[in-house]
Design a protein around this nucleic acid. Structure first.
Length: 302
DNA sequence: AACCAGGACACAA
DNA sequence: TTGTGTCATGGT
């Protein structure tokens, strides 16, 4: 067993807990001590939020640090991004309530496959399905002695070789068909995922939507979370709710009008804005934003 | 115990 | 274009 390597990454305004648990990625787990464990490019990684930065551990060669820095988007200037948000109350409240929330840059295939499995599933369930899929069909990953076994995310070629029943056995239900067909599409080279980052937003989106089981929302998630399209604005049930309740509390905008509002209102960092609204809306529902809410209500009406 | 979940798709109106 | 039923599964 190789020695554990350790590295400190200085970074400010980075909420590791909020970011890794915000429904962008589904394979990072936090233990009781607040230490996160995950797999990055087939390598075991441990992350811990410390004073003025993030402390990381791995078993592998030092070049994993470059990839980790990219995954965590450590060179991104968060304050500069938030400054580009339109100064409307909902977004300002979101910023206040979700301090340090970030967007990650994850592997496109894992992102695409995971979000095909996400449709009408709660985040906890998506985590369970993906864990089962990796446990059964992913390659084992070396972990330090005493740690639970870990697995990489199975590639498109591996999944393409499975049957519909084998996938359904991972509790994914009707989503198996789309995952299987999309795996074949990527495995056979009919869709070059990594090549999409060089395309225009609409071109890349259309390419993704040729995949069975991939509509506008899932395509937008892949564009934003893995391919670097920062204007992509995925609209799921939570963001839908946020837009209706926070921006159009009385009237009920048509889908078309809502789409043009999204396109014109949120600016060049629309994707980040979307993630803040998503996270804020879920905080409100779970009651964890109650104090921040009251504080802002007070300033707004006082 | 109902209701709903980071939807997509076919099909009706 | 916009609305509705269907598709599995299980958390809350």
């Amino acid at each position: 067993m190789p020695p554990i390597r350790e590295q400190f990454f200085p970074v400010l305004h980075y909420d590791l807990d909020a970011t890794l648990a915000s429904g962008q990625v589904f394979r990072w787990n936090r233990d009781a001590d607040g230490i996160w464990q995950g797999i990055l490019k087939g390598r075991w990684i441990q992350l811990k939020s410390v004073s003025e930065g993030i402390q990381a551990r791995t078993l592998e060669d030092p070049d994993v640090w470059m990839e980790l820095e990219h995954f965590l988007q450590l060179s991104v200037d968060l304050a500069a991004i938030l400054e580009q948000f339109p100064p409307d109350p909902p977004l300002q409240e979101s910023i206040a309530a979700c301090h340090g929330l970030r967007l990650l840059r994850q592997d496109p295939w894992e992102c695409l496959a995971s979000f095909i499995l996400s449709s009408t599933k709660q985040i906890v369930q998506i985590q369970q399905i993906v864990a089962l899929l990796c446990q059964r069909y992913g390659d084992p990953v070396p972990v330090p002695a005493g740690h639970a076994p870990a697995f990489g995310f199975p590639g498109p070629d591996r999944l393409a070789a499975l049957t519909d029943d084998e996938l359904r056995a991972c509790k994914m239900g009707y989503r198996a068909k789309g995952l299987l067909a999309t795996s074949r599409q990527v495995a056979e080279g009919r869709l070059d995922l990594n090549g999409l980052s060089g395309e225009e937003l609409e071109t890349a989106r259309e390419a993704l939507m040729t995949c069975p089981g991939v509509g506008r929302k899932i395509a937008d998630c892949v564009l934003l979370f893995s391919l670097g399209f920062e204007q992509s604005f995925p609209v799921d049930v939570w963001v839908q709710k946020a837009l209706r309740e926070l921006y159009f509390p009385r009237r009920r905008p048509t889908p078309r009008r809502l789409a043009t509002f999204i396109d014109t209102h949120f600016g060049p960092q629309a994707g980040y804005a979307q993630q803040y609204l998503f996270h804020y809306m879920r905080m409100i529902k779970s009651g964890k934003a109650a104090s921040a809410n009251r504080k802002l209500e007070g300033t707004a009406h006082g």
